[in-house]
Design a protein around this nucleic acid. Structure first.
Length: 561
RNA sequence: GCCACGAUAGCUCAAAGGCAGAGCAAAAAUAGAGCUUAACUGCCCUGUAAGCAGUAGGUUGAGGGUUCAAUUCCCUCUCGUGGCUCCA
């Protein structure tokens, strides 16, 4: 049995005409259902009644995940080539329906044996679309691969059917370009190689510049802190199972899983006035989280990573203004990289601190800011942080999986617990609201997304190596070295290939490294005091003056493309 | 953490509970193949995506067990991949 499962905003179908003689009797009209899990079902040869039951059981588990309790069983013959006989199929489908009813699921069913007109709007969350195969074993799995041959665009292929990593995966490209590696002794932690660090530093430089322009002040603080702190912050109660602990002179210490406590401590280190607000502390905070081993995934999910964090202490009056400024900042950054993103508003989770009223207020503030900023968003009940609601920005990877990068979170719990307060106009103490936010999210994850986004062909301003000089014969080495020095003096990230290989070989190598520009130096160039420039698309310009090339390059870097 | 699968040279992978001799075969092996070269040497001195040769490279992820014999079978662990769950 094959099931194509879609979590739909709505579905409409209309039985048009009977396709087989054994079709059920049904009224020919338009049916519409909303907020429903649609199961397109093909019953296959050899499927026993148990298969339907098993499938429904599986679906029931899933329903809980997506918090829906309504399904439509939609007989759909196009998922398989070896269909069961119609009467058997109908029987099994009816059994599924009965079993679902027994499980107290609200069940609807489209008629069997009809040509049906169909319209559907499927949700965009990661679990919205799935395909499943039930029944036995290996042959089916092999057959699943051939699903690709079926000319039906709706048929999804299970990812696990593909072996190995895709060429587009950042882990593959990262290795090819020598950006980073993973070592067995540090599971879930990345080793950045020289080129990876260059990329990271470029991101950091850009980030620092844009933040200081906007009135942020950078702080830096330790990563290993006494457990007493985690008890105050609430992490001890809400996040302990995800933390790493250690003991120093009989005292318990924990590696920070989040940066907020540090910002709290710096803030409350002296008394603050309402006139000081908003105070914006940004911090490149290394955090450690003990993620379950099975969830680790390249740069996208690590146990140690650096958040480009900031904590903005603000009073209620300026809250929305600050939120909007943060949203604008995210937009500004993502436009530079040309990202398409989706925005989600995540609301109060079950495991939350703080009282209901404040939560409500914070949620409203975020929602209003989104509306004012004219941003499209969807709501995510129960997905907020334990101390406050948040706005998340998601981006898709090369496999169409969504990853959260930027997030904006509101919090008045933490400042209260830390007794971080300011003196208001009225001369009394007030608790500020804290906006926790990241732009890149985690530097490492962001780099992973960048690698996949550009497929290793970084724009010049990001490219770890911007130019490689290729002398045609060893005789040209000396001259090439001179030009190389000149580039380096101009702050161009350049290197030379002085091996005794043919020029074709050197070009191939530079090409594989996806270096934006090659400068090729042979006898002609030496004689005419010029350079030949080849870009990574293969276009060649001869007789270029080095100064002109440098000028042009700098312009490109300036414009960040 | 759970389910499934995997780990053999720089990379991609094959094979198989061991051995001798002979014949056949273009030719080879029980530790192998491939890579129009990843490392080192040397030669070649080159004109826009791979010049040639030589050398080196491995306790078959780690530890235990079964066995006369384990790289192969079994157990445990580590790491990885996909999914579940969770998150930046």
């Amino acid at each position: 049995m094959r099931i194509l499962q879609m979590h739909a905003d709505w579905i409409e179908y209309e039985p048009v005409r009977k396709e087989i003689s054994g079709a059920e009797e049904v009224e020919k009209k338009k049916y519409r259902l909303e907020e429903i899990l649609v199961l397109f079902v093909s019953v296959e040869e050899g499927d026993g009644p148990k298969v339907g039951i098993e499938a429904v059981d599986e679906v029931e588990k899933f329903l809980k995940n997506v918090k829906v309790n309504k399904i439509l069983i939609y007989p759909f013959a196009h998922l398989s080539r070896s269909l069961a006989k119609p009467d058997e199929a109908l029987k099994i489908i009816k059994e599924m329906e009965a079993h679902a009813k027994k499980l107290k699921i609200e069940v609807y069913r489209a008629p069997f044996g009809w040509n049906k007109a169909l319209a559907i709007k499927v949700k965009a969350h990661p679990l919205a679309e799935q395909s499943k195969v039930f029944g036995s074993s290996k042959e089916k799995k092999v057959e699943m691969k051939s699903v690709r041959e079926i000319k039906n665009p709706m048929v999804l292929i299970k990812r696990s059917d593909f072996e190995g990593l895709s060429e587009k995966d950042h882990r593959i490209i990262g290795e090819q370009l020598d950006l980073f590696s993973f070592q067995e002794v540090g599971p879930g932690m990345v080793f950045l190689h020289p080129k990876g660090v260059i990329l990271r530093n470029i991101l950091i430089d850009f980030w620092r510049k844009e933040h200081s322009k906007r009135g942020y002040q950078e702080i830096s603080a330790p990563i290993l802190l006494n457990n007493a702190l985690w008890q105050v912050s609430g992490h001890w109660d809400h996040f302990r199972e995800n933390m790493f602990f250690s003991e120093v002179e009989n005292q318990g210490f924990g590696l920070k899983p989040m940066n907020c406590p540090n910002a709290m401590l710096v803030f409350k280190n002296k008394s603050r006035s309402y006139r000081d607000l908003p105070i914006r502390y940004n911090e490149l905070g290394l955090v450690h989280r003990n993620e379950l081993s099975g969830v680790l995934s390249g740069l996208f999910r690590l146990r140690a990573f650096v958040q480009d964090d900031a904590h903005i202490f603000v009073d209620e009056k300026n809250l929305e203004k600050e939120i909007i400024a943060v949203i604008d900042l995210v937009k500004y950054f993502y436009d530079v990289f040309g990202f398409e993103y989706s925005v989600e508003l995540s609301l109060k989770p079950e495991k939350a601190m703080g009282d209901e009223r404040i939560w409500k207020k914070a949620e409203e503030a975020l929602e209003k800011s989104l509306k004012d900023a004219k941003i499209k968003y969807s709501k995510n009940p129960g997905e907020g942080a334990f101390y406050g609601p948040k706005i998340d920005f998601h981006i898709k990877d090369s496999m169409d999986r969504k990853w959260q990068l930027a997030t904006v979170q509101l919090d008045s719990v933490m400042p209260e617990r830390f007794k971080a307060s300011y003196i208001g106009e009225d001369g009394k103490e007030h608790i500020p609201i804290v906006i926790h936010r990241v732009i890149y999210g985690a530097l490492e994850r962001f780099m992973g997304i960048l690698v996949e986004h550009y497929q290793g062909k970084f724009p010049v301003w990001l490219a770890p190596v911007q130019v490689r000089i290729l002398p045609i014969s060893d005789d040209n080495n000396k001259h090439a070295q001179k030009l190389l020095n000149e580039l380096l003096e101009n702050d161009i990230r350049a290197e030379g290939d002085f091996d005794s290989h043919k020029i074709e070989y050197k070009i191939k190598m530079a090409q594989l490294q996806k270096i934006p520009y090659m400068i090729i130096i042979g006898k002609k160039e030496e004689d005419s005091k010029s350079i030949a420039v080849r870009d990574r698309e293969g276009k060649v310009k001869f007789k270029v003056k080095l100064e002109d090339f440098v000028k042009e390059l700098k312009k490109q870097i300036e414009k960040r493309n």
